[in-house]
């Protein structure tokens, strides 16, 4: 015969059932929440396989004053500009939505093919939707006397960064 006095065999009361269900649902919700968080985090990789951000760009005197060099644009996405007294490097990335503009020597401007932003040789924006000037990147001299360009450091005109001595080389 069934021993009704034993607690362990007693049928689960309504209250007991509900509190167990609450515990179960809280665990289930926590597990699902945790797993969804893991799924989200999984989509943000820790290691990237990108080309190195710095490169050597030849000797300063191979650039002529008043000209924009497109030699490194294809491989490193950087223009080297030499004016009368200095050399600087501009990142070829439109400040509107990130396309690569072209240097148009006849019109002496950078022109973006995506939505038509235009920039002067200095990188200052003057037409189209781009809200701010092109960014410059760090330029210096390597031990062998070549230009050393480092794209991981950028200089923004609107923040006054172009005064920073790392953003240009005096010639």
């Amino acid at each position: 015969m069934v021993d009704n006095t034993s607690n362990t065999d007693a049928p689960l009361s309504r209250r007991g059932f509900l509190s167990w269900m609450t515990v179960a649902w809280v665990f289930f919700a926590a597990a699902m929440g945790g797993f969804l968080t893991m799924c989200g985090r999984f989509l943000f990789p820790n290691v990237l396989f990108e080309p190195p951000s710095s490169f050597k760009a030849g000797f300063p005197d191979q650039y002529s004053p008043g000209a924009v060099s497109v030699d490194w644009k294809g491989k490193h996405r950087v223009w080297i500009v030499r004016t009368d007294d200095r050399i600087y490097a501009i990142l070829a990335r439109c400040t509107h939505l990130g396309c690569t503009p072209n240097w148009l020597p006849n019109e002496s401007k950078f022109k973006c093919p995506c939505h038509g932003s235009g920039f002067r040789m200095s990188g200052i924006n003057f037409e189209g939707p781009a809200p701010r000037p092109l960014e410059r990147v760090r330029i210096g001299l390597a031990e062998d006397g070549q230009l050393l360009i480092d794209k991981s450091v950028t200089f923004r005109q609107e923040k006054g960064d172009w005064e920073n001595p790392d953003s240009y080389l005096m010639t």
Partner: peptide
Amino acid sequence: PLSDAKYGLLGEREVRGG
């Protein structure tokens, strides 16, 4: 640039193989 919406969408900083 290593944690925002664009990075989550592309899985990298610019549009490449990833």
